[in-house]
Amino acid sequence: MSLTATYKLSARLFWRDKGTLPASVITPLGLAIGMPTLMRNVTAGGVTAAAQMFVGTLALILSGTAFLNITVALTMRRDQLLLKRLRATRLTNRQILLGEVANTVTQTVILMIVSAVAVHLLADVPLPRNPVLFAVFAVAGSAVMATLGVAWTAAIPRGELAAPMTLPFFFLAGLASGAMGSIVDLLPPWLHPFLAALPTSAVVDAVRASYGPGTFGSDLAAAAVPALVLAAWAGVALLSIRRWFRWESRKS
């Protein structure tokens, strides 16, 4: 009952927060739909290039809608002592945070599906061959990114620093996944393994497999490493929350 209540509250606030919507919805969605559509029309590769880019832009939705949004929302709520007020009720700490994470996952997965359908209609990018693989990694990836966002709030001293301290990850995730084209190839090769180990890169790798040719067996094989990478990040996030998460801003 109470988890549903925090989920509902979080969802209601998500769409009302006009300050965050440009970063959490409009920009990632615009890039995820706009850039592949542009690629479809301006490059010789057409559909292939558009599909390649679209899967990369999912990293922008994951880092914008899941990670950035929950970090900013929770930091602001912490500073405004709204988390404290929620804790004055019968809600447990877990219910409060799970409600936020569950809402963030819902919004992120919806945007990923909306953008997949939109680029299918606008840029002829085919729908995923294996929609289950797509869906599983959309949900798991959003959940890990949202949980990492909860953990990251501990490093942010004040609400107004939440966006600037989170945006670099948005660009890093986009860069690593190819959402910004082939700039990544210009980076020194020793950086590549680090970029590939990002949680957003893991999701993009698995989703790429869901679009490309393959069988059930090859999909499972392609999902194994991304699943392990996500599990490792989930562990880091949960341990960090347990160790460092703050419900109230630090008293000066």
Binding site: M1, S2, T4, T6, L13, L82, R85, A88, T89
Partner: peptide
């Protein structure tokens, strides 16, 4: 302790009833 500034007093109480 803070309130959600864009909710009305009535909406705030309604939401808290869920908790």
């Amino acid at each position: 302790a803070g309130f959600f500034p864009d909710l009305t007093a009535g909406q705030t109480v309604e939401i808290w009833r869920d908790f």
